[in-house]
Design a protein around this nucleic acid. Structure first.
Length: 599
RNA sequence: GGCUCCAUAGUUCAAGGGAUAGAAUAGCGGUUUCCUAAACCGUAGAUACAGGUUCGAGUCCUGUUGGAGCUACCA
């Protein structure tokens, strides 16, 4: 009979025991994945539940009999199982208190509980996110992208992967020419210093200006009797922008100089926004350096006969076999399109660093693009095409509908962050808990709380789903929010400071129901992390931390820590809440959220 | 037109094919001489519709309705 120790995961122990019972009594070799063990629902007695329905075909007995048989078997085979009950087809098992005590005394209080350190042979994951255009500042949609990319990167690192975070800046193209052109026309030499504007906002201002000029020109043409479609193609300023792009591609020194200048303003602005969001990259690629990549690969593909050329010279991939359309890969003038470039950058990155997987954090409106990218790479003969993964996330919408830059309903990233911190400040001042703090300490806390609320609000939603961003709701600091979790942490730290001398770091006393409930939740942390990493889904972690915080607050409300009955109990509770604090801290860090000592 | 995704309390989100569908918020009603009330407790409220598969369906399949995205020699 195998020996089990309290250091093993209990789910594994239960599955092994069930499999053992099946082998001995039903003469059947049960695969582990066919044994269902889940957490017992609150309303029933027990810690873990074996679902017996799937086992009936082997036991040849009814659910009740099968459950009872397995229950007695488990209780008889291991000291870790104390009792059981069977309700319908569910076998509920009570785990011995010693098991929970040993968790608390052992792994739970470790600062890196649940983390997996990357070994020498850790897989390399490359992750591309953010990918901004340089013609306007970042908005709410970018925030979701950046927060997701950063959090997923952190979660992958925490589960033993080697992660390379990369950014691909879209720094060239007609859009930036439009900003440049409008600045030339109306800028009067204005720059970030003279205007006092953040560089990305300044350039964005001229992008808007361009659109105004363009619209009025179209309007004028229409008034002169030109059909609207034609006018939209004939507007003078559009032709000028195209001409500027042509000169840019011809490396015209004057255009290049202006381009470099205005881009440098934007980068300085982005840098501030990134810093504020707390994100950074291992490597930044610029499209101006990569946009010609892929052309050779496409030509090679043409030679191999996996692509075809039309009479006008353009090169295409036929994707009909895959149930899709035909896709252009090189224009008739020989220039690249976005797809060509992505084929090229993927190839380049694989050459630079042989990754085990490559994640693109890009909105779901580009699902088709990435589907095609993988197929084209496979056609070109690259087996690693299967290692590309498109982490597609849903749109962020406002209560009144989609964000539209033309209608000015876009939520600007910088303004939003200002607003969040400002609301945090107002809220805090009303509560008046930080009055003895210095201004620096206060503003640090306002920043932590404001940013925490924003980040949590976005990350708690399943990335795949579209989400509604209600500004009023996002600055709410009550309920299922980042602030709630931060507040819980601050409470824990406060008690720990006051009880430092009584903290012996051991668990000797009998645990009550609330204490066990808290341990049970904390015990799930490693599995939540692994699952969040597997599914690239930080919302699992966010919702877990909320559950943990809620459970702690109940415990805190019902039981005094520092005035517990015995010294041993005080010490044990301090150990318990320290563990909870550690998990909250490290979990929040994986979401990119700081936790304050006080608030 | 074709392809893909989505539809859960008034609202915003949860629910690895498993028990009586959970939270938050808004509403109503409570809790503080006591470790931070940014907290805690109680109350009420939902699976778009119609079939099917299954011992069991919010979850899988088909259809209907409603919404979003994609379907550029744009990125």
């Amino acid at each position: 009979m195998p020996q089990f120790t309290t250091m093993q995961r209990i789910e594994k122990i239960l599955k092994d025991l069930v499999a053992q019972a099946a082998l001995q009594h039903w003469n059947i070799n049960l695969e582990e994945e066919h044994i269902q063990v889940q957490k017992t629902r609150r309303e029933f007695e027990g810690d873990f539940t074996v679902v017996v329905f799937p086992l009936l075909r082997y036991s040849k007995q009814n659910p009740e009999q099968t459950g009872k048989f397995l229950g007695s078997y488990l209780v008889g085979s291991s000291d870790l199982i104390e009792a059981f009950n069977v309700i319908k087809g569910f076998l509920n098992l009570v785990v011995a208190q010693q098991y929970w005590k040993d968790q608390l005394d052992g792994p739970l209080c470790s600062h890196d509980y649940g983390m997996i350190l990357p070994g020498a042979d850790a897989p390399t994951v490359m992750i591309e996110y953010s990918s901004p255009n340089t013609n306007k500042p970042l908005h709410l949609g970018h925030i979701r992208n950046n927060l997701l990319g950063h959090s997923v990167s952190s979660i992958l690192k925490a589960t033993g992967k080697h992660v390379e975070q990369v950014n691909l800046v879209n720094d060239r193209g007609i859009h930036i020419c439009k900003s440049m052109l409008a600045w030339q026309k109306n800028g009067n030499g204005e720059d970030p210093v003279s205007s006092g504007m953040k560089g990305d906002h300044l350039v964005g201002k001229y992008y808007v200006r361009y659109d105004q000029i363009y619209k009025s020109q179209v309007q004028t043409l229409v008034e002169k009797g030109m059909p609207k479609k034609e006018a939209e193609a004939e507007a003078e300023v559009l032709k000028e922008a195209r001409e500027m792009l042509r000169r840019w591609e011809a490396e015209d020194p004057e255009v290049r100089k202006l381009w470099e200048t205005m881009n440098s303003w934007v980068y300085a602005g982005f840098e501030l926004t990134y810093k504020r969001l707390g994100i950074s990259f291992d490597k930044t690629y610029y499209e101006s350096e990569t946009y010609k990549l892929g052309k050779e690969l496409v030509l090679k593909g043409l030679n191999k006969g996996v692509l075809y050329q039309k009479e006008d010279g353009s090169i295409w991939a036929n994707l009909e076999e895959e149930g899709l359309d035909h896709k252009l890969l090189l224009r008739s003038d020989g220039t690249s399109v976005y797809m060509t470039q992505d084929v090229g950058t993927a190839h380049q990155r694989y050459e630079e660093s042989v990754f085990d997987s490559h994640i693109y954090v890009v909105g779901n409106e580009q699902n088709y693009h990435f589907q095609v990218l993988t197929i084209v790479l496979k056609k070109l003969g690259y087996a690693w095409a299967d290692k590309l993964y498109h982490l597609n996330y849903g749109m962020v919408e406002l209560p009144e509908g989609k964000m539209k830059s033309r209608e000015g309903t876009v939520v600007d990233a910088d303004e939003l962050m200002d607003e969040m911190e400002d609301t945090a400040r107002q809220m805090s001042e009303e509560l008046g808990k930080l009055e003895d703090f210095t201004e620096e300490e206060k503003s640090r806390i306002y920043r932590q709380v404001g940013m925490g609320a924003l980040k949590y609000f976005i990350l708690k939603v399943d990335p795949k789903k579209n989400m509604t961003f209600d500004p009023r709701e996002s600055v709410d600091f009550n309920g299922n929010t980042g602030s709630f979790i931060q507040y819980t942490y601050a409470r824990i730290r406060s008690v720990l400071r006051k009880g430092a001398e009584k903290h012996k770091g051991t668990s000797q006393e009998v645990l009550n129901e609330k204490e066990i409930a808290l341990i049970r939740i904390m015990y799930d942390f490693p599995e939540i992390l692994v699952e969040a990493a597997r599914t690239l889904n930080p919302s699992l972690l966010a919702n877990f931390l909320y559950e943990l915080a809620k459970e702690f607050n109940q415990f805190y409300h019902d039981h005094s820590i520092l005035s517990a009955e015995t010294e041993g109990q005080i010490s044990q509770r301090l150990l318990l809440i320290e563990s909870a604090g550690n998990i909250i801290e490290s979990g929040m860090e994986l979401l990119g959220i700081e936790v304050p000592e006080r608030m």
